[in-house]
Amino acid sequence: MRAPLLRYVAARLVRALLTVFGVVSLLFVLLHAVPGDPVQAILGDQAAPEDRAALRSALRLDQPLVGQYAAFLGDVADGSLGHSFRQRGTTVASLIAQVLPFTCALAGSALGFALIVALPLGALAAVRRGTRWDAAASSFALVGLAVPNIWLGPLLVLGFGVWLRVLPMPGDEPSFASSILPTVTVGAALAAILTRQTRAALTEVLAEPYIRAARARGIAEPTLVFRHALRNALLPVLTIAGAQLGALLSGAVVAEKIFERPGLGTLFLEAFFDRDMPVVQGVALVIALFYVLVNLAIDLLYGFVDPRLRRA
């Protein structure tokens, strides 16, 4: 029984490694294929030719493409991700490490918020199909999807910070209360998506014969829903959550701007305005790697939970 599981894990790991290599290569190709001269972008039109030449060699743009690619791979492989242009001597990795915890905390709490809202609400909608509860859950999902995060953030600040004055404004001292609105801003759309997903998955599971059998054995309805049905419905919900991770991180970029918080998004935008290309590349790469790793973890989890998948 052990061998199929090992083979499943090995196959997924190899595929994740290939994806990582592909992601690094794609980023390199993209940033070199798009028309535009980084030296021009960084120094502007009036720079002296010597400065241009110096920057060109610092950026390794004077080397052939293959050499640049090898150097880029080297920077990724040694974990430094290269050096920042603006803060000479600082590696991109150390800049990212300084702010990563903030973004992870924000993304994590947003995911937690989404699950805490979506699982009970979706379950309620599935169990009480066609009732007012179901309608309420659907309208919540519709509103959550229709209100973009760039709009939800300012709305929440206006409602809770300016009018009701119950929560801190952007830029106030960091505290638990000051992280509530950013969390909701990032997590609302995911909560809406997961509510729909939970409702659909649970509806399907509740129609299965084994649920009818359990009900016939006299198992109490709450136990039936939460122990027997929701467990099996969780897998598709988790997969969707993993697939939505990118949107969650984009949301973090937006929320960090609105709420003036430090994090990957703030670092990313600052690097953009400074035209600090290694930092822009590095942050994009870290975010993509994060996405690949989380989806690998979900894949592996699937393999452990559902033995049928190990054969695939």
């Binding site: 984009s250 970029v253 996405y291 690949v292």
Partner: peptide, 11 residues
């Protein structure tokens, strides 16, 4: 694998 916003900004 890249959030679209991140890829757009990088480009």
């Amino acid at each position: 694998a890249f959030p679209s916003l991140v890829l757009n900004v990088a480009v």
